[in-house]
């Protein structure tokens, strides 16, 4: 069953075409990984899924709602149902880690302070950061920042969580920890995740489906095994990290 669709979406920024008739289906209850070259439009696809970007043409449907039909205010409300973990965490640097994670609950629920504290502690514990609750973002390491970003993204139990390059620039051990964390959080939430990543080992370890974006369009989509066995030379060149092939260097 599908949780979200992008249907023939095209998007340009000025003269630069980012997406060309891009279509993608996100299966419910699965982790879909988006791969592709730098600048291929992966992060833009992620932003289409929570309405941070709108396509120039085409349609985006998430949880049965056509995002193109929502007013600005309705779109803001709709985003409460989707978690987003940013590439550089985007924690609010004037707040402690605990306050960052508590923010969605304070703003969107009528929970008591005690209940919010309990949920924040539980969520921080689930990403191994309970001890960092009172620390400021500037005091955290790269891996801790990412996990704090994960905690903020999942604290209000969203059905869909979007991860933008969660393991980029981190050492292999932290990468492994974050990969496990994403898998575990998806299971805990019984939800759906979309992960943009370049890290093929992580993708093979956590992904259920892979979609490859090339020159603004999805050129391959399937289960991890299907994509690994793809006969598309572009996909194979990317997966093998080879300089030789149809991808222009």
């Amino acid at each position: 069953m599908s949780l979200a669709f992008i249907d023939n979406a095209s998007l340009s920024f000025g003269n630069k075409v980012v997406l060309r008739r891009c279509s993608l289906e996100i299966k419910e209850g699965a982790i879909t990984c988006l791969i592709g070259l730098s600048g291929a439009g992966k992060s833009t696809v992620l932003r289409l899924l929570n309405g941070l970007r709108m396509p120039d043409v085409g349609r985006v449907t998430v949880m049965g709602v056509d995002l193109m039909t929502l007013s600005k205010r309705d779109l803001i409300d709709f985003r409460q149902r989707i978690g987003f973990a940013f590439q550089f965490s985007a924690l609010f640097d004037s707040m402690t880690v605990g306050d960052n994670v508590a923010l969605p609950l304070r703003e969107h629920t009528r929970l008591s302070k005690t209940d919010i504290d309990r949920i924040v502690n539980r969520t921080l514990d689930s990403v191994g950061l309970l001890q960092a609750r009172e620390q400021m973002p500037a005091e955290l390491s790269g891996g801790m920042l990412k996990r704090a970003g994960f905690a903020r993204a999942v604290v209000n139990n969203p059905r869909l969580v979007l991860y933008d390059e969660p393991t980029t620039g981190l050492d292999p051990i932290i990468t492994h920890v974050l990969t496990d964390t994403i898998k575990r959080l998806r299971q805990q939430l019984d939800g759906t995740a979309v992960v943009v990543s370049h890290d093929l080992d992580s993708i093979y370890a956590m992904g259920d489906y892979i979609a490859m974006l090339f020159e603004g369009a999805i050129i391959e989509y399937g289960t991890v095994e299907e994509v690994r066995r793809s006969v598309n030379p572009i996909v194979q060149q990317f997966l093998q990290g080879s300089e030789v092939g149809p991808i222009p260097i």
Partner: peptide, 14 residues
């Protein structure tokens, strides 16, 4: 530039 404004929007805040 540190995506904090986009994060507000992503959290359903104006």
């Amino acid at each position: 530039v540190t995506e904090q404004v986009e994060a507000l929007e992503a959290l359903g805040l104006s």
